[in-house]
Design a protein around this nucleic acid. Structure first.
Length: 853
RNA sequence: GGGCGGUUAGCUCAGUUGGUAGAGCACCGGCUUUACACGCCGGCUGUCACAGGUUCGAGUCCUGUACCGCCCACCA
């Protein structure tokens, strides 16, 4: 018997072990026992901390969540068994637009930041037709109320799935702590000059009426059309330009072509005149102009796309903006400064037809005008092209000049790339995604949003005596006041009556981009600047688990914030999960209507069964949704119950492992333990489950069959004790290897014979099994299994019952193998019911079997 | 346009320094074998996408091509 396997705990095995009810039973026991509570007395070196992704509570959970959160849990459980104090908090993402929309509809309210807080506000029973305006603090209270319900549902599912989260460490991205930390970190950025405010062209969603960040863009294929239009040269003749956005002609400030393009070289430095509106615009040269696109000459408008912004900035062009925040064309007085025209009355008359229209409607009208004036060459040629959208938006983005907050990013790019290289990626190739993103950045991170629900910027501005806002006259609160809401709180030194009054103050109206808060998840979970003792024990964290689609947002922004605030990586490892694909290889998502509700799956296949399927998905690899694998997992769990029951049914006598096959079994398992430990440390959980499962299956099929008789005393007490010693030791280790994957069934079996919960038991080590590697034992076990297999095959071929005796077995094998026979002969005779065994020296292994009549 | 993955049995996927192709599922056949019929035993199944190259030897290394998926791009 190996040292340390204490069997003093009474053994108690149910008659009919079953999986049903294990989830409820064990989640309750784990909760009561505080099994997953973080032990905050432990130093950083014995802590394993996880920067858990906060799921969006206003959305619904789908099987993809179950999939990726299981991966994290497997690693968490492994580290806990390795003796680490696991810091595994759960966050809820209730910040941002999805929640804002949900709260509006659910309660029938609308946020109006100009209103004062009403402590006694109660929403109507039913939402009315007209939304009730409420203050921002009231709105946030309603959000907290609604999301609390969602969080309960999520928490129940997570517990049922078996996530070993410390539920005392939850946070929400809109709660006071998150607000405080977001504001605090912002003030620190501001103080260091790493956040700044600027009035500049910004990507803008005209429906949401807010700025959006580069990271929130997506391309969508849209039908469009090239319109060839002509610009008059003053000395006669025309210059032709292709555009997909003719409605922006009034916003045209220049024409651009490539400096080497001979067609346009003579025109550089001259002016041409825009059609319809008669505006003189210069022809400029710029290397970004592509001679092969359209006519090779492009219209620069303020602003049609991001390239326009680049040209506008680099060629130092004037602004002639026509699109307002709501997407409508703004009124323009033609002939006034900046709107000079060779024919101002005509321009005015034409433009008045466009004013107030959306871009799409203005385009139709403009095309009519161009056709009428003869400036449209030919007919529009329909094309399909990619257009930039806000990922949650319905209309193409516009570029609107507005005052926004930015976090400096561009100047830190090389530092961020270095951090990306320092981070250990699982899988490694995901690092490229971050590099691509950083190298493709074209501006600092715009973090302000013109929304109501979110973390407000903790800033007020002085109001001048003439009533105008002095944006340079910033007033910020002392850190001790945070969190604050500038729409209701008052800056130090001012009274509430001075709000929006000449000589008084006004609050910043914007809220932070949701990623501006999420990017601080390690600081929020670790309670930065609130509980420095805790923070020091968990930060930088060990791992950030997340999906690959948000590398450019969450992963990137978290590295940025950590670099700026702490000068360090926020975590050592990034474990990137793949997606769950439906059988048609499409990403599963709500919009495709192919989602499966996770709770139903857990109930049908058991949490261990679903986890088994999830564990088959390697880091970074998309995995097909497959209930077949869940069934296999469920079968494995049942098999574990039954095999354990068999092992534990007759544990006496047990003692030192002396028999060759027994030592071989333990040696083989010890090898698996070594490999598994190394694999789990590098996030290769998939292989660990595979290997352990394969071993377990041959343990059941071959080893158990082989030693069945001996353990009951066929060969005397000492061989029986050896078999039982090996059975118990290997069961003990196999259970612990399976524990991170199948937490319910393993703890159930553990409770039959071992003290405490398996989830705080030590991760197995090779030393638990044997003192030295016994290669001969391994060979003997393989040899015996080979003979047994040949006999089974014969019986199967002959369609005879397995209990049919073997009259004679002739084993052909190399001498080296035949030498092993004496080590296993008695086990073989007993399990194979073999009467006579002969051996023949041969090059290859073969068994000739003659069954008894 | 740039980049990253992938392409192995009907399906889902392993295949770790190059050495005669693997697992599970599915399918077929068999077996009451006192841990398990939610079981057990056995069987069938492959031009490893394609074309070159390196090598005694390539699923594995190199080059190129095709297709699938994803990420990114300054898409007039």
């Amino acid at each position: 018997m190996p040292d340390g396997l204490d069997l003093s705990h009474p053994i108690s095995v149910p008659d009919r072990p079953a999986l049903e009810g294990l989830e409820q039973k064990w989640t309750d026991r784990w909760e009561r026992g505080g099994v997953y509570r973080f032990d905050r007395t432990r130093g950083r070196e014995t802590v394993y901390s996880i920067d858990t992704p906060p799921p969006t509570v206003s959305g619904s959970l789908h099987v993809g969540h179950v999939f990726s959160y299981t991966h994290t849990d497997i690693v968490a459980r492994f580290q806990r068994m390795r003796g680490k104090a696991v810091f595994y908090p759960m966050g809820w993402d209730d910040n941002g637009l999805p929640t804002e929309r949900r709260v509006q509809n659910y309660f029938g309210v609308r946020c109006d930041p100009s209103l004062p807080y009403e402590p006694a506000f109660v929403p109507p029973e039913k939402p009315g037709k007209q939304p009730i305006p409420v203050s921002r603090p009231n709105f946030i209270e309603l959000c907290a109320r609604l999301t609390a319900e969602d969080e309960k549902v999520f928490e129940h599912l997570w517990r049922y799935l078996g996530l070993s989260v410390d539920w005392s460490m939850t946070y929400a991205t809109i709660d006071r702590r998150s607000q405080r930390i977001s504001q605090l970190a912002f003030l620190r950025l501001l103080a260091r000059g790493e956040a700044y405010q600027l009035e500049a062209p910004t990507l803008w969603d005209v429906d949401f009426r807010t700025a959006v960040a580069q990271a929130e863009l997506e391309d969508r294929e849209q039908p469009g059309a090239y319109h060839k239009i002509r610009f008059a040269k003053p000395e006669g003749g025309y210059l032709e330009v292709d555009t997909t956005r003719p409605e922006l002609i009034p916003a045209c400030v220049a024409i651009v072509a490539h400096p080497d393009d001979p067609r346009y070289q003579p025109l550089f430095g001259t002016d041409v005149i825009t059609p319809i509106f008669g505006v003189r615009v210069p022809v400029k040269a710029h290397a970004l102009a592509d001679p092969d696109k359209g006519t090779g000459a492009a219209m620069i408008c303020t602003f049609g796309d991001i390239t326009d912004v680049t040209w506008w900035r680099e060629l130092q062009l004037p602004v002639r903006a026509i699109i307002q925040a709501n997407g409508a064309f703004k009124p323009v007085a033609w002939g006034a400064a900046g709107w000079e025209s060779t024919d101002a009355p005509r321009a005015q008359q034409r433009y008045d037809e466009l004013a107030g229209l959306s871009a799409a409607k203005a385009r139709v009208k403009t095309v009519d005008m161009l056709r009428e004036s003869g400036d449209l060459i030919g007919e529009p040629r329909p094309i399909t092209h990619a257009v930039k959208f806000y990922e949650k938006g319905d209309r193409p983005l516009e570029i609107v000049t507005s005052r926004q907050w930015f976090i400096r990013t561009m100047e830190f790019r090389s530092r961020l790339l270095a951090r990306g290289a320092e981070l250990k990626w699982h899988p490694a190739y995901m690092q490229t995604r971050l590099e691509n993103w950083i190298n493709g950045l074209n501006g600092d991170w715009c973090v302000s949003r013109q929304r109501f629900f979110g973390v407000p910027f903790p800033v007020w501005y002085k109001v001048r005596d003439d009533g105008s806002v002095d944006h340079d006259g910033r007033l910020v609160p002392d850190e001790s006041r945070l969190p604050i809401d500038p729409s209701t709180d008052v800056p130090d030194g001012y009274g509430a009556g001075q709000r929006d009054q000449p000589g008084g103050f006004t609050g910043d109206k914007d809220v932070m981009d949701t990623w501006a808060t999420s990017s601080l998840s390690p600081q929020i979970a670790g309670r930065w600047e609130e509980d420095p003792d805790l923070f020091a024990r968990v930060f930088p964290m060990d791992v950030r688990p997340q999906a690959h689609d948000i590398i450019r947002t969450w992963l990137f922004s978290t590295i940025l914030r950590s670099e700026l605030e702490h000068g360090t990586l926020p975590w050592r490892n990034a474990a990137i999960s793949g997606w769950v694909l439906d059988p048609d290889r499409k990403k599963m998502s709500k919009s495709k209507g192919n989602v499966v509700t996770p709770m139903g799956l857990l109930e049908e296949h058991g949490s261990d069964g679903v986890r088994y399927w999830a564990a088959s998905g390697r880091p970074g690899t998309d995995t097909a949704f497959d209930t077949g694998q869940m069934k296999v997992g469920r079968r494995l769990a049942i098999k574990l119950l039954n095999a354990s029951k068999f092992v534990l049914a007759n544990p006496e006598p047990h003692g030192p492992v002396t028999t060759a096959v027994d030592k071989g079994l333990l040696t083989a398992l010890a090898r698996i333990v070594r490999e598994s430990t190394a694999d789990l440390e590098s996030y290769n959980y998939t292989r660990v489950l595979e290997r352990t499962e394969t071993f377990f299956w041959s343990f059941c099929d071959d080893y158990l069959e082989l030693v069945k008789g001996r353990r009951y005393g066929d060969q005397g007490a000492e061989p029986a004790a050896s078999a039982n010693g090996a059975l118990l030791a290997s069961l003990d280790v196999m259970l612990r290897l399976f524990a991170p994957f199948l937490p319910f069934v393993t703890d159930e079996v553990w409770s039959w014979w071992r003290p405490g919960t398996i989830h705080t038991a030590a991760w197995p080590s090779a030393g638990d099994l044997q003192h030295e590697d016994d290669a001969e034992g391994v060979a003997a076990l393989e040899f015996a299994a080979g003979v047994l297999g040949a006999i089974r095959k014969k019986k199967s071929e002959e369609q005879r019952p397995m209990k049919t005796p073997v009259a004679r077995a002739v084993i052909s094998a190399p001498q080296a193998q035949l030498h092993l026979l004496p080590l296993v002969e008695q086990d073989l005779r007993a399990s194979g019911l073999i009467r006579e065994i002969e051996t023949v020296v041969a090059e290859t292994f073969a068994v000739h079997v003659e069954l008894a009549p």
